[in-house]
Design a protein around this nucleic acid. Structure first.
Length: 501
DNA sequence: TTTTGAGTTGTTCGA
DNA sequence: GTCGAACAACTCAAA
């Protein structure tokens, strides 16, 4: 019994380096059961989307071989996570269970059930802080409430940065007697798509801890120096490309934070310093998203501001389909949606443009956009997705003002000035000179002929007129924001029948 | 308790 | 072509 093994539950922390739960388990000095549980019956946001499952498959493959190099094995099981873990724990007579805490509602339910189980067994179960820079319970306003505005949150967070140094990856993970430890095969989880649409993904990404480290190295080598100015340019490769690695926990935010701050200490140019600060701030936004989801778990489904439940979203499925397929007639929007479809990723600036187009030009529900991103992004992250969509839609924390409506033409010209991004993803427009690449419907007919563009045939006319759509959105939002909080703060108002939350 | 200053990412219009 | 103001009103966080 005293030699009973420790169970290490891997969730979205698929790494050996700087993994506090794993290191604590190793320090206990007993054999380890490294466990991953896949729940095939999970639904909605409790289950990774299709593109994300592709990444998960390869990330687990890497983790598994990494663990093998330490003399142990990754045990894969299927079922309800908490039940699988506790029955395994029971089988080995009250062992210790180690895991890293998560901000996601589904994982928190699992944690809660594990804690209940362990309590009943007289065991001990506390999650470790491995996916955040700071414990979300320790960051609060002076009045003890959670922050809902980024800037004061960021100021407060910076007072605890940089975090303690990252932990080294354990070299040896002592293995338990394996006789009772059956494992499912990775293939049996069926994470890979049935129809092979993933070649675009394969050509773009290297899931796993090693891929994460080399992405960081590559980022620090050059793009990080131009990040503050060029990160908004979808035509340039100056983003970190780390989002998915971070989501699956192949690299810890602490490791990233330390790498960035240590580089800041050495850097010579003001430009590079500014860039590193800008990147750190983005890590701050990631932290803020997790913090918000932790404190307001219902926001994955519902607007943070309850009054927005009554917003008059439109419901046109043909518009939604055009947006999803990259056939809106606005080149920068279509380029983004096609980049997403083909690579499982979209540049952040273009995420904002496409999201603004969906929620403000088309007036479609932000959840429709969030659902699509959830299914198609390899870096789909519940916290980031929720914050991002609610921010754009105007119903979330620190929300974008209602009159901030992106103009797809202006944005295209500003951030893809030569049209290189559009040409890459919307090749049927490639022959157009850059003057017209962001508004082909305005191009002189002769030029269209020369470029072999036949509007309405090879490329659609705009599905909606932006100027008119903008006015419609302004009207809807203007009328609406006046009553933004009416049903939460004044139950005596005429909207009393909707006062429930 | 009250007051005060501030609040990621934009666009348009008119001087 | 460039620049500043207007686009609203509200909530948050701290003093």
């Amino acid at each position: 019994m005293t030699d009973s093994p420790s169970i290490v539950l891997f969730q979205t922390d698929l790494r050996l380096a700087d993994n506090p739960a794993l290191t604590a388990a190793v320090q206990r000095g007993k054999p380890l059961i490294c466990l991953y549980v896949w729940n095939p019956d999970a639904k909605g946001y409790d289950k990774p989307g299709a593109a994300s499952r592709w990444w998960l498959h390869y990330s687990l493959e890497k983790l598994s071989s990494h663990i093998q190099q330490t003399g142990n094995d990754l045990v894969i099981r299927t079922g309800q996570t908490a039940e699988v873990v506790s029955s395994l724990a029971a089988q080995f007579k009250t062992p210790r269970i180690f895991w890293n805490r998560s901000c996601e509602p589904a994982f928190r339910k699992i944690e809660h059930r594990l804690q209940t189980f362990l309590k009943g067994e007289g065991g001990d179960g506390t999650g470790f802080d491995g996916t955040n820079l700071a414990d979300p319970d320790r960051i609060q306003t002076q009045s003890g409430t959670p922050y809902t505005v980024f800037t004061p949150f960021w100021k407060k967070l910076q007072t605890v940065l940089p975090p303690s140094p990252p932990l080294a990856a354990p070299q040896k993970l002592p293995s338990p007697p394996s006789t009772h430890l059956k494992s499912e095969t990775l293939a049996s989880l069926k994470l890979l798509p049935k129809i092979d649409w993933a070649h675009g993904l394969r050509n773009t990404w290297s899931p796993g801890e090693e891929g994460a480290r080399s992405a960081l190295k590559k980022f620090l080598l050059a793009p990080a120096k131009h990040y503050s100015t060029d990160r908004d340019r979808p035509d340039l490769p100056h983003t970190s490309q780390l989002s998915s690695h971070l989501h699956f926990g192949e690299i810890s935010p602490r490791t990233l934070c330390q790498a960035i701050t240590s580089r800041m200490g050495k850097c010579q140019s003001a430009q590079e310093r500014k860039s590193l600060e800008a990147y750190l701030r983005q890590l701050g936004w990631r932290e803020f998203a997790r913090y918000l989801l932790y404190h307001f778990p219902e926001t994955a489904q519902e607007p943070l501001y309850a009054a927005y439940k009554k917003f008059p979203w439109d419901d046109r499925s043909d518009f939604l389909a055009a947006w999803q397929n990259g056939l809106t007639g606005y080149p920068i929007v279509d380029a983004g949606m096609r980049e997403l479809w083909q690579t499982g990723w979209m540049h952040n600036r273009v995420r904002m443009i496409t999201a603004s187009f969906l929620t403000k030009d088309l007036l479609l529900h932000w959840k429709a956009g969030a659902d699509w991103f959830w299914d198609t992004l390899v870096d789909a992250d519940l916290a980031n997705n929720t914050l991002g969509w609610q921010w754009v839609a105007g119903c979330g924390a620190d929300a974008s003002p209602f009159f901030r409506i992106f103009n797809p033409i202006t944005q295209g010209r500003k951030f893809d000035p030569d049209g290189r991004y559009v040409r890459k993803w919307v090749p049927e427009l490639a022959g157009l000179p850059h003057k017209w690449i962001h508004q082909p419907w305005e191009a002189p007919p002769l030029l269209l002929v020369e470029a072999q563009v036949r509007l309405g045939e090879t490329y659609p006319y705009p599905i909606i007129d932006h100027a008119a759509a903008r006015n419609r959105a302004l009207l809807a939002y203007r009328h609406f924001t006046k009553n933004k909080h009416s049903n939460t703060s004044s139950p005596t108002s005429d909207s009393g029948k909707c006062a429930s939350t």
